[in-house]
Amino acid sequence: MNPLIALTLGATLLACVLVIAGVHVYLAGRAQRAALIARLASDGAPEPAGRRRRFPGVDRRLRGTALGRRIERKLAVTGLDLTPPGEFFVYMLMSVAGIWLLAASFLAPFFGPVAGLVGVWAAGAFLDWQRARRTERFINQLPELARILANATQAGLALRTAIAMAAEELEAPAGEELARVADRLAVGHSIEESLGEIAERLPSRELVVLVSTLVLSARAGGALVGSLRNLTVTLEQRKETRREIRTQLSQVTVTAYLVPAIGLGSLLLVNLMMPGALDRMTGAFLGQSAVLVALGLFTLGFVLIRRLSKIDV
C-alpha cells in the first residue's frame, strides 16, 4: 500500500476516534450539568409533599436562557407552588393559546393575536401582583416582627438568635424569609448582607427602616430595644394608615378594571346583535386601525386611573 494512502487513512481514523470521544465527553458533561442544575433547584426550592415536578425537560432548557432566569427570579418572591420556571412557562403558553382561540371564536380572527399579547402581559402582571400581595402581607407582619425582636433582645438574646426565634414563631411570608436569613447567618454571612437580601426581594419603606435599624445596631451598638419599641408603634400607625387609604381608594380601583371590561363587553354586544359585524369591521385596514386605537385608549385609561390612585405612604 502506498505510504501516503496509509498515512491518510490513519489520520482519518484517528480524527474519527477523536471526534467520537469529543462528542461523548460533551454529552456526558451536558448531562452532568443538567443533573446538577436540577439537583440545585430542588435543594433551593423544595417541592410540596406529594407534588411531582412537571415538564422537567422544558425547565432544564429554559433555565439556561435569560427569560428563564427572569421568570425564576420573579417566581422566587411570589410564594407560588410553581417553583420551576418551565412549569409556569408551559401553563402560560397553554393559557395564551386558550385565550387566542376564545377571542378568535367569539369575536373575530383579528382579535386572536391581540388577545395572545394581552395574555402574555397578564402573565407578567400576575407575577407582579403576587409579589405585591406577598410584600403587603409581609409589611403587615412587621409590627409583630419588631415586637418579637425587641422582647428577645430585652431578654438578653443575640440578634441572630432573635431572628431565628422570630422565624419559628411567625407565619409565612415573614417566617419563610427570616428562616432564609437565619440559614445565611448560620453559614457565615453578615447581618447586613442577609437582611439586605430581604429588602431587595420584598421592597418597602417599612422594611428598609427595620433593616437599617438592625444593621446600625449590630454595627455600632446602641439602645436596640428602645429603637424597636418605637419602631413597633410607628409600624402599627403606618399599617392603619395604609388600610384606610386602601379602603378610600377601593372605588377608584374597581373603576380602573371596569374601563377595559366595558370595552370588551361592548364588542361582545355588537357581535351578538349583528353577527359577523366584527369580521367585516376588522377585514379592512381602517377598521383594524380603529380597533387598535380604541384598545390603546382603553389601556391608557386603565394605566392613568391606576397611576392616579397609587398613593405612597
Rank of each mutant, 00 (worst) to 15 (best):
N2D: 15
P3T: 05
I5H: 08
L7S: 14
A11F: 10
T12S: 15
L13R: 12
C16D: 03
C16W: 06
L18W: 12
L18P: 10
L18A: 15
V19M: 12
I20L: 11
A21S: 07
A38L: 06
L40I: 05
D43G: 07
E47T: 13
P48A: 13
P48R: 11
A49H: 14
G50A: 09
R51F: 08
L62V: 03
L67Y: 14
R69S: 12
R69C: 10
I71C: 08
K74R: 14
L80K: 09
D81I: 02
T83V: 14
P84D: 05
P85C: 05
G86Q: 04
E87N: 02
E87S: 11
F88Y: 11
F89N: 04
M94H: 01
W100F: 14
A104E: 00
S105H: 03
F106E: 00
F106A: 01
P109R: 00
P113E: 02
V114M: 13
A115W: 01
W121G: 01
A122V: 02
G124Y: 15
F126E: 09
L127D: 03
D128Q: 13
W129C: 00
R131Q: 13
R134D: 02
L142A: 10
E144G: 15
E144T: 15
L145V: 15
L149C: 07
A150V: 07
A150H: 06
A152D: 11
A152V: 02
T153R: 10
Q154R: 09
L157R: 10
R160Y: 02
A164R: 11
M165G: 12
A167P: 15
A167F: 08
A167W: 08
E169T: 14
E171F: 00
A172Y: 03
A172Q: 09
P173V: 02
A174E: 05
G175L: 02
E177N: 11
L178F: 12
L178H: 08
A179D: 09
V181I: 10
V181L: 04
G188I: 06
E193G: 04
E193I: 09
A199D: 11
P203L: 08
E206L: 07
L207E: 09
V208I: 13
L216R: 15
L216M: 13
A223P: 05
A223C: 00
L224K: 07
V225D: 13
G226L: 05
G226T: 08
G226F: 11
S227L: 13
L231Q: 07
T232V: 08
V233P: 02
E236T: 07
R238F: 04
R238G: 05
K239C: 06
T241S: 06
R242I: 08
I245N: 05
I245P: 09
R246V: 02
Q251V: 13
V254A: 10
V259S: 06
P260E: 04
L264S: 07
S266T: 15
M274K: 04
P275E: 01
D279C: 00
M281W: 14
G283C: 06
F285S: 05
S289H: 00
S289E: 02
A294R: 13
G296C: 06
F298T: 14
V303N: 03
V303S: 06
L304I: 07
R306F: 02
K310L: 04
I311L: 10
D312I: 08
V313G: 15
